[in-house]
Design a protein around this nucleic acid. Structure first.
Ligand SMILES: NC(=O)c1ccc[n+]([C@@H]2O[C@H](COP(=O)([O-])OP(=O)(O)OC[C@H]3O[C@@H](n4cnc5c(N)ncnc54)[C@H](O)[C@@H]3O)[C@@H](O)[C@H]2O)c1
Ligand SMILES: NC(=O)c1ccc[n+]([C@@H]2O[C@H](COP(=O)([O-])OP(=O)(O)OC[C@H]3O[C@@H](n4cnc5c(N)ncnc54)[C@H](O)[C@@H]3O)[C@@H](O)[C@H]2O)c1
Lengths: 210, 210
DNA sequence: AAACTGTTGTGAAAAATATCACATAAATCA
DNA sequence: TGATTTATGTGATATTTTTCACAACAGTTT
């Protein structure tokens, strides 16, 4: 029904709305959201229409209502717990990032094979990989992040899956084979940089030949 | 002509090819690449056809040739220099990541407003923001990464643009307004996590009602 | 050397996504 | 109260992207 980019846009709208709310906005027009999310206003309305979200035929949308409707769709009406496997550069950056919590995303534990990284005496403990299954079961974790080196990623994914994890964000630069009924999204930063290189060069050429 | 996801796939194919090459593969079939990049083999061939890349009607593709052809398209036939603005968690993670260099991407300097972060006595120096313009001009930098807090991101982008940067990867969780002839790609990790939450819940519901 | 096999390459069809065009509703004004 | 203005909501249309179907081809077998 809804497509991936539509959901990404919903997230962005929600972000924008929260921002606008702190500026004491009470209602918004699809045009406002379009500006902030860098899309067209029709796109905004179409996205809403897809989820049965509606505003007032003239007065736009009430921010509070809109936020809670989008939040419900995105599962942000309750805190969603994540674990992070691989507490290196990326893993640490994620665990240190305070804003997730503000948006109902809670990183509840890290896991690593390197025992030097283990640490139970902090709010978000770093645990040995062996405890993954137990922890996931006891705390009913559904989501996780993979930030281990590429060669370990597939193996870690399978471990997570067996533990009961249903959704994974992967930073390792390989395309993981997703187990059945498990959602995996790959983020490949190198690929992103290459994309920029390509389109920058391309734009230059196009510009030059104009 | 070529679309964004096609270029992303080219990057993935290239990655896969390099991986296969280290396993002493000499040629590949579109099927092999499809497996590694998790797409269909038609997609692979179609992507190639779009760029006039062709193989042997029966024997697949010669890895070496293929790598160099894709590399040329992606601008990987020479080292591409990037700067990073904002040397916090994410900025540091990027600068510490050794694999960029292996793939012709070189992070040549970091910039920060916090003078405690400045450091010239290392391979990749961290410089004050004031030196951005000079550095970019002198070193002919075209690309950069934004890893500053959200409220500073737009301002930093404009600074980079005025300095002559043409392509930017942005980690701040806002949609930046791209200056003319400047390519900007936004990575929003929170949005990615929300995406996973949505599609995991969605898959569960679909599964349950089956 | 003809038949066969397995893979590429691509125009055509299908599916997914975004845009357009405009009817519809609410608020304001005359 | 009726005309006017200004958004929304959405079926129809256009565009983009993927998949299908199959011809072209190069080896291999008989
Ligand atoms: N750092 C970056 O900027 C960057 C950029 C692009 C891609 N990546 C990718 O992101 C991933 C993480 O990068 P990083 O820089 O944080 O790596 P890192 O080497 O700093 O950290 C990896 C961590 O994973 C742990 N680990 C290794 N094998 C494990 C296993 N089987 N189970 C659990 N933990 C294990 C290690 O002990 C280490 O703490 C890598 O796949 C990397 O290729 C990172
Ligand atoms: N760390 C994460 O896991 C994470 C997750 C999601 C999003 N992000 C986003 O990525 C960006 C970077 O995150 P982070 O965790 O590395 O932040 P951070 O706070 O650790 O680092 C930000 C750095 O930017 C510098 N800075 C601030 N204003 C600046 C300016 N005008 N010019 C130059 N430097 C400036 C600060 O001195 C600091 O060193 C943020 O926008 C954040 O919202 C980070």
């Amino acid at each position: 029904m809804a497509n991936k980019s539509c959901i990404i846009r919903l997230s962005m709208y929600r972000n924008a709305l929260i921002r606008l709310k702190t500026l004491n906005f009470v209602k918004v027009f699809s045009d406002n959201l379009a500006d902030v999310a860098r899309v067209t206003s029709v796109q905004v309305r179409k996205d809403f229409s897809l989820f049965g979200i509606s505003g007032n035929r003239r007065g736009g949308y009430l921010i509070d209502e809109l936020i809670s409707q989008i939040s419900a769709i995105l599962g942000k009406d309750k805190v969603q717990k994540f674990i992070v496997i691989g507490i290196g550069n990326i893993g640490k950056a994620l665990l240190n990032y305070p804003s997730f919590k503000k948006n109902e995303i809670e990183l509840v534990a890290g896991f690593d094979i390197d025992m030097n990284k283990h640490n139970r005496d902090v709010e978000v403990p770093i645990l040995p990989l062996e405890e993954l299954g137990k922890f996931v079961a006891e705390n009913e974790i559904k989501f996780g992040v993979i930030s281990v080196p590429d060669f370990a990623a597939q193996e870690v994914l399978e471990l997570m899956f067996r533990a009961g994890i249903k959704g994974v964000l992967n930073f390792a630069p390989i395309c993981l084979k997703e187990p059945p009924d498990c959602v995996v999204r790959n983020i490949n930063l190198e690929t992103e940089l290459e994309n920029i290189i390509y389109f920058t060069n391309f734009a230059e050429q196009a510009g030059a030949s104009r």
